[in-house]
Amino acid sequence: MYAQVVKSEGSKTRDEMTPEELAFQDRIDRGEKIEPKEWMPEGYRKTLIRQIGQHAHSEIVGQLPEGNWITRAPTLERKAILLAKVQDEAGHGLYLYSAAETLGVSRDELMELLHAGKMKYSSIFNYPTLTWADMGAVGWLVDGAAIMNQVPLQRTSYGPYSRAMIRICKEESFHQRQGYAIMMKMAQGTPAQKRMAQDALNRLWYPSLMMFGPSDKDSVHSAQSMAWKIKMNTNDELRQKFVDQTVPQAEYLGLTVPDPDLKWNEEKGGYDFSEPDWSEFYDVLAGNGPCNKDRLGARVKAWEDGAWFRDALVVHAEKAAARRAVAAE
């Protein structure tokens, strides 16, 4: 997902927990929200910073592959819709950074960690957007996969994170639909447009499946995060749900999912499908995806080029405050 491989701290059995930790776990089990000033295990706090930070970074790095096409959008309306969507992503990044900040880390610190390569963002944004159909496929598949994870996260145990997710889900409702609308237009368009649509699905299908992260059946980290309700479903559950939802949508478009082994399994009531190439996934995470250097480079450049601007506004605010103080004397 937008937070794919989040190392979780902690993992204790009830016997190993201190009385405080037990009381904390009981609150979570009762469905209570944990709020910023309240006591929480250090592991919970650290894991959340990592996860929310990764999620926030994904939103702002995620602006880039779609931002790539704003100046080339084919109609004025498409341009406006795409711009509004990418703008929403900046907003979502902002909400999530704010949620992380309630845990005692500043946004600038998180940015510096991202720029230094010490924090990750979703692997999906290291893939290029090569044609206009990718704007459709990103909305349809990437936002579709993200929503699958974000809807349950509205019920996450940490209050500020939960509230950010509620706001994000509300705003994102149009994102996937606008993507699918582009795909419909392409799939019903000229032969070249249809080819473009199929090509986008071919390239983005497996990277979308990777968004849910590797199978976490045996992962201790996942178990702890699920106990803390900062992870609501296993990666495999969400991936299955995504495939089951998406395959009929592809069929409606008249497009072929690039998986020869894809078939309906009556018994489990879902599709059997091929795993993505996990070695590619780890390569991308390690910095060797097609766009890692471009994406991070663009973020670092924006940050560094903007330093004088941010600094100047701070200095002006201080000057203005000093002037007001003198005037008030």
């Binding site: 902002l94 909400y95 704010s98 900040e101 706001r167 701070v314 605010a317 203005a320 405050a321």
Partner: peptide, 12 residues
């Protein structure tokens, strides 16, 4: 309350 943001001063 709707959320938070960063700004150099109240007006901004």
């Amino acid at each position: 309350h709707v959320g938070s943001l960063h700004a150099p001063d109240a007006e901004m």
